[in-house]
Amino acid sequence: METDGQATAPGSALALILVREIGQALAAFAESGEPAAIDLRGLPMSDADREELLAWLGDGEIAATLAVAGRSEIRETRFTGVWWVRHFGTDDRIAAERIEIASVPDILIADMADVTAAAARFDDELAELSIPPSMEEAEHV
């Protein structure tokens, strides 16, 4: 984990409040394993607030881009277990933005329903491969 003691403390009051809230949630998560999330979009944040908070949290080890109903970006911050999650609609317009305090954000985890469906689909596709109709036959179908 990157520990950058040189990071400047956020100057904006809102960013400072958020930093404290994140710190408390992270401590609680470390102790009890209870995940938490903070919605950033419902707050009257200015761009400056956001940048200060972003700068303070820094970059961690993981960055993921999702292509699910538009783009989503998930980055771990320099504090392990603190994730910056941004969901975009089309036109790259932010639909939701939140800080998640968790081992992994839920959205990264494969849902068992999707896994089951995927397994079924896999089976179907595999079946198509293992009962070998010739390419020519297939073309005739």
Binding site: P35, A36, A37, I38, D39, R41, G42, L66, V68, A69, G70, S72, V85, H87, A95, A96, E97, R98, E100, D106, I107, D111, A113, D114, A117
Partner: peptide, 28 residues
């Protein structure tokens, strides 16, 4: 599922809805 939309998309939609309706983010 029939339309090939994953549960991740539902989760993302829920995150948007929770944010829009000012529901607790952890409820998504």
């Amino acid at each position: 599922a029939q339309r090939g939309v994953s549960r991740r998309a539902i989760l993302k939609y829920a995150a948007w809805l929770a944010s829009a309706m000012a529901l607790p983010p952890s409820a998504s």
